Simulated assay, not measured.
Amino acid sequence: MTTEPTTDVTSAEPTPGQLLRAAREKKQWSQKEAANQLNLGLSLIQSMESDQYDAKLLPTFIRGYLRCYARLLKISEHEVLKAYEQLHGAKAVEPRAMYSFSNRTEKEATENRFMLLTYLVIAVLVGMLLVWWWQTHWLTDNSTEATTEQAVQADTARASMEPESGNAEAPLPEVEQAAEFISSEPVDVPQPSTPEWVASGVESPLSSVVSAMAPQNAELVSGASSLRMRFKDDCWIDVIDAEGSRVAFGTKKAGYQLQVQGIAPFTVTLGNPTVVEIDLNDHAVDLSGFNTSRVAKFSVPLQD
């Protein structure tokens, strides 16, 4: 077992590195053995025990590493994180809430808002069209009824003004011509011909066009994969799709549900894989093979 140089301590309260180092030495583990069990680099274990972290490493990831290391050593995670906050002060404050949206998701949200506005405008136009049709139909019916009443009144007045005569019942020449026209033989009207593909029972030509277009649409839909994650406890994550786009990262709270889209396979890193349930395209991903105390990094779908 290798030994490491001790760190000078000037503060009254123990630092997170001192707490972790004391717990590790109590178990008689070397730093290399702890790194192997956590699946982390030896330099990261050394930086945590010496309380000296890379400036490029976000406080969110530092908290995740400290939490995993404390869980492995079976000491209080709260005590280690509290010591970290006291040691670094304002530097340990969490950044603003990070939104787990990729550029693709933001673009889809913008398109959804635009489509919603479009549907709203269409609904208003349809409503205005219905109001206009109702008003026009109502006015037309009223004007037709008024015209009919006026015509009846005019006919009644004309009939009352015509003098009675013995030839009143004789038909007028125009009426006789109309009667002759009605009594004549009806004119033959040609019947529409039935299309050849209907008479022969052949499928419509448009069906072949629709069936040819269906596979293309299916390929477009299958280009992206949906990844859903459910958290039973607090856990930090990092998810990158096959195109190299980081679609999700940060600490997720217990009970949170996350759904992202991207090109599979996804590279997933979990601080505590046992508190996360993952579905890929509505199919559950088996995470039973990962240890509770280890940081898990794997591909989804899982590789044999």
Rank of each mutant, 00 (worst) to 15 (best):
G89T: 11
L72D: 05
Y53D: 06
R71Q: 14
P95G: 14
T60Y: 03
S76F: 00
F101R: 13
R71N: 14
L57E: 10
H88C: 07
L66T: 03
Y69P: 06
L58A: 09
H88T: 12
K56N: 10
A70G: 06
V93S: 11
L72G: 03
A97D: 10
P59S: 10
R96S: 13
L57I: 14
V80D: 00
L87N: 09
V93Q: 15
F101Q: 12
A83C: 08
F101P: 00
E85T: 00
L81T: 01
R67H: 07
L72C: 02
L73P: 05
R96A: 13
Y84A: 01
F101A: 11
P95L: 05
A55I: 09
Y53S: 06
R96H: 09
E94K: 11
L81F: 02
Y53V: 12
S47P: 03
S50G: 07
K91R: 13
I62G: 01
A83H: 02
L72E: 10
L81M: 07
L66F: 04
M98K: 12
I62P: 03
C68R: 15
S76A: 06
A55Q: 11
Q86G: 08
A70D: 05
I62S: 01
R96C: 04
I75N: 00
H88G: 04
H78F: 03
L57W: 07
P95F: 05
R63N: 09
A70W: 03
L58P: 02
R67K: 12
V80G: 00
F101Y: 10
M48Q: 08
D51P: 08
K56W: 03
A97E: 13
A90V: 12
L58Y: 03
E85R: 00
A55T: 10
E49G: 09
P59D: 08
S47R: 15
L87C: 07
Q86E: 10
I62K: 04
P59A: 09
R96D: 12
R71V: 07
V93W: 07
Y65T: 06
H88L: 15
Y69G: 02
K56L: 05
P95S: 06
Y99M: 10
